[in-house]
């Protein structure tokens, strides 16, 4: 079986499983598929209201600014939270017959990504239209989205394999993301971070994936946008290398540890 055919079969399996995941997730709920957009919309509305009205952050067009950071953030955190234990919890299935463990991971990432895209554009388009921001950055949006999904897929693969070997990982992920929410310029601009604390931003992989959205949608600047895309690409490559390296090192013990 040549590699192209193998990848084609893998993609088919991922697609079918993602479709089934989506079907099962909202079955028997009253709101059904509406939950896809309800959750991010509620989060976005409450945060937008609190930071604008209570904290009175001096950021022009704050709703659009928050949208660019918060929705990718929700996608990253929610996906990491759901995917990290997926291989560990699917031990019985993985040991029942030969299947690629990557199918389980990427199907869940794809499922979440489709939900994110729906929510993102449903909220983005009206907010963007009613703002006075330029639309020039829209052509770079697919690149930012591609880098986001590539980075999240690699990180999720790494975390889910690590969880099989170190059962503490999912608790660490949950704890770290709670802390990172305050250390990542999601609800405040990066300029608010004093120079001496910029290290939290410069070495923050989540911010590297979120930053291009800001320059595409909110604050279009071609030079800064290209720099942020390059930074996001480098972070993606680093996470991918880590994920592949860890898998190669541990794959012999994978089924034993399930």
């Amino acid at each position: 079986m040549d590699n192209n055919f193998k990848y084609k079969l893998l993609i088919r399996q991922i697609y079918e499983l993602a479709k089934a995941n989506m079907r099962s997730r909202y079955r028997k709920t009253i709101a059904g598929f509406l939950w896809v957009v309800l959750n991010p919309i509620i989060m976005y509305s409450v945060q937008s209201f609190v930071f604008r009205k209570f904290l009175k952050l001096e950021v022009p067009n704050y709703s659009l600014f928050l949208l660019c950071g918060l929705l990718p953030w929700i996608f990253i955190v929610m996906t990491a939270d759901m995917v990290t234990p997926i291989l560990d919890f699917s031990g019985e299935l993985l040991k029942s017959f030969k299947m690629s463990p990557a199918v389980l991971v990427y199907a869940q990432v794809l499922d979440n990504f489709i939900n994110f895209i729906f929510a993102f554009f449903l909220i983005l388009i009206p907010t963007w239209i009613f703002s006075d921001q330029t639309f020039s950055g829209v052509i770079f949006l697919p690149v930012a989205l591609a880098l986001l999904v590539a980075g999240v897929s690699s990180a999720c693969w790494l975390l889910s394999v690590m969880q099989v070997f170190f059962k503490d990982i999912r608790f660490i992920v949950s704890f770290l993301t709670s802390i990172l929410f305050f250390l990542t310029p999601v609800f405040y601009p990066v300029e608010f971070v004093p120079e001496k604390y910029r290290i939290f931003v410069d070495f923050n992989p989540i911010y590297a994936m979120i930053e291009p959205f800001r320059y595409c949608i909110y604050n279009y600047n071609l030079e800064l946008l290209c720099k942020s895309l390059l930074r996001s690409f480098v972070v993606c490559c680093m996470i991918f290398t880590l994920a592949v390296g860890f898998w190669k090192r541990k794959k012999n013990e994978f089924y034993l540890s399930l």
Binding site: Q13, F97, K98
Partner: peptide, 27 residues
Amino acid sequence: RSIFNTTIGIIPELTGRENAYLLSVLM
């Protein structure tokens, strides 16, 4: 092709028919 367990549910919340389809896609 290898089979080690015969009581596998891919997504238990889905129906038997849907699980059979998924099982065939994976196998």
